[in-house]
């Protein structure tokens, strides 16, 4: 049966809320201290971003870290790609024009000369994908409130952290309002694909107003139950020895891959 647009939005909403279910798991990765996970994710992103634009062989082994942790967390890697399918093309489009500007010949592959533009495009794409994977890993193994609590602990300003929390909560509110509105629209515009351009202005305006009302109500509900910008209720796990080990091993791995040419080391195992 063909899906109606409204249902698609509800489906997206369901996927969003399913992140909370993933984060509520009980694997080794889930049980790590949120601060340690946050620090490791930040270090990973910094390490990934620090690779030179032509260092394609160097960056590839960086994929091991998220894939290994996804496996340990019991979350299939394909779940990550499936959930990020809308964002991934945008991230991958970042280096799309590099081949047109950078014609530096790098090496010959069969009859083709591979240019620096192609290499840097692939490297940039991988950087984007890896960063998304590590962010998704953090979000899928740590409840949002614990991430916010960890951010506060490292003195990220309260305003920014509250903004992150409320954005996360309001995305659901916005999406559910959008689902109701698109359903109402399509019931009065049968057979029409999408929202007609003439209705975009009022549709978006209404969506904004309705979302603001809902958001206000939700925020008031939080205030009435004692929310004061702090995260007393976030699950706190003490920074234990294993968190230190996790962080140290992760950092060592990033350093090894970044400065030790892991691809060459692995290659030497097989070719003398």
């Amino acid at each position: 049966m063909k899906r109606e647009p409204g249902n698609k939005i509800e489906h997206a909403l369901h996927e969003l809320t399913a992140m909370d279910e993933l984060a509520a798991g009980s694997s080794f990765v889930h049980s790590l201290n949120p601060g340690a996970k946050l620090a490791a994710a930040v270090l990973y992103i910094l390490a990934v971003l620090s690779f030179h634009k032509y260092d394609l062989s160097g960056i590839i082994p960086m994929v091991i870290w998220p894939v290994l942790l996804f496996t340990l967390a019991g979350i299939p890697v394909r779940t990550c790609f499936y959930k990020l399918r809308i964002v991934l093309p945008l991230v991958m489009a970042v280096g799309l024009f590099n081949p047109f500007f950078d014609h530096t010949p790098m090496f010959r592959l069969g009859g083709f000369i591979v240019t620096g533009g192609v290499i840097s495009m692939i490297t940039l794409m991988l950087k984007g994908v890896f960063c998304l994977m590590s962010s998704f890993l953090l979000a899928a193994t740590t409840p949002i409130d614990s991430i916010c609590a960890a951010l506060r602990k490292i003195h990220v300003p309260e305003m920014l952290v509250t903004l992150l929390l409320l954005t996360y909560r309001y995305v659901g509110v916005l999406t559910s309002e959008l689902a109701v509105m698109t359903d109402a629209y399509h019931l009065r515009a049968p057979g029409q694909k999408g929202i007609h351009i003439s209705a975009w202005g009022s549709f978006l305006g209404q969506l904004l107003l309705r979302s603001m009302d809902r958001a206000q109500s939700l925020y008031e509900s939080m205030l009435l139950r004692g929310y004061d910008g702090r995260f007393h209720y976030a699950i706190r796990t003490k920074f234990a020895e294993r968190d230190a080990v996790y962080l140290a091993v992760s950092a060592a791995f990033f350093l090894l891959v970044r400065y030790g040419n892991a691809a060459e080391l692995v290659g030497r195992l097989f070719v003398r």
Partner: peptide
């Protein structure tokens, strides 16, 4: 996310 987390939200905040 869950009923339990909502249940403890207020009491812990207070």
């Amino acid at each position: 996310p869950t009923v339990y987390e909502d249940l403890i939200f207020g009491p812990v905040n207070y």
